[in-house]
């Protein structure tokens, strides 16, 4: 049985239907890359899964528990969120907190872990992303790549069952993309379950176990990374991959 399953998720903003009817499952240890042109609904899908947007309808089955994405209570949402990490396109580090405090704040405030233990875990996470020497820096004193690595450390600190990445390298200068991708690659090798909305074809091809192409709020094609790139079934997928090659 899948660790996480999404069934028939739908979402519109006013007249604009962003997610038409999307269902898929995530197994433990999966790294799923979600591809698609801008405006295809990939980010909205991820945000609905962490209750940052409220879906119009849809079911989430997480660890065998069924949750109505449209009607989950705040307490229920927060329960689910505690099992998930979320990495934003523009990092969203707490601007008034140091790198270390960014990583530990959720532990000390939401999870009531004492500060010494949180600090220790925080430093361990920063070490994982290669930033233990920047622990006392504030976000504005860090480069974009460093901020995003702190954000990953923050997501990891809560020991999530799954981490959602929303275009984690899209806001970065090209020379900073590599450091973030290599942290994500290391996580994948550690067996972390990840859903990654991305435009990085190299990452999707080399790191992810499965790839999903979304357009106009529907899944165009879904399959193993190898099948998707080497032997796509849909003409639309072939066109998408060709266009990317031309860029």
């Amino acid at each position: 049985m899948a660790m996480l399953e999404i069934r028939n998720i739908r979402k519109s903003f006013g007249e604009n239907t962003v997610l038409k009817d999307i269902s898929f499952g995530v197994d433990k240890g999966d790294v799923i890359s979600v591809l698609g042109p801008s405006g295809s609904g990939k980010t909205t899908l991820l945000r609905c899964m962490d209750f940052l947007e409220t879906a119009d309808s849809g079911i989430m089955v997480f660890d065998g528990e069924e949750i109505d994405l449209a009607k989950a209570s705040r307490a229920r949402q927060s329960e689910v969120r505690k099992k998930c990490g979320f990495v934003f396109q523009n990092y969203n580090l707490f601007l008034n907190k140091t790198a270390l405090d960014n990583v530990t704040l959720g532990l000390t405030s939401a999870r009531k872990i004492n500060s010494a233990e949180a600090r220790e875990r925080g430093m361990e996470m920063l070490r994982k992303v290669g930033l233990e020497r920047r622990a006392d820096r504030y976000p504005n004193q860090l480069s974009g790549g460093q901020q995003q690595r702190v954000a990953i450390a923050r997501a990891l600190a809560a020991v999530p069952e799954i981490i959602y990445f929303d275009e984690p390298t899209s806001a970065l200068d090209p020379e900073l993309i590599g450091e973030v991708l290599s942290v994500m690659r290391a996580l994948a090798e550690d067996g972390m379950t990840m859903v990654v909305v991305t435009h990085e074809m190299g990452f999707a091809r080399d790191v992810s176990s499965r790839v999903m192409l979304i357009e106009h709020g529907l899944i165009v094609e879904e399959g193993s990374a190898r099948d998707f790139f080497e032997n796509p079934r849909e003409e639309r997928t072939r066109a998408f991959l060709r266009r990317d090659q031309n860029n």
């Binding site: 962490d50 209750f51 927060s78 990490g85 934003f88 969203n92 707490f94 959720g106 939401a110 809560a158």
Partner: peptide, 12 residues
């Protein structure tokens, strides 16, 4: 985004 990040860290 500051508020959303807080939510994603499990904070109320």
């Amino acid at each position: 985004g500051q508020f959303e990040a807080g939510l994603c860290c499990g904070m109320n």
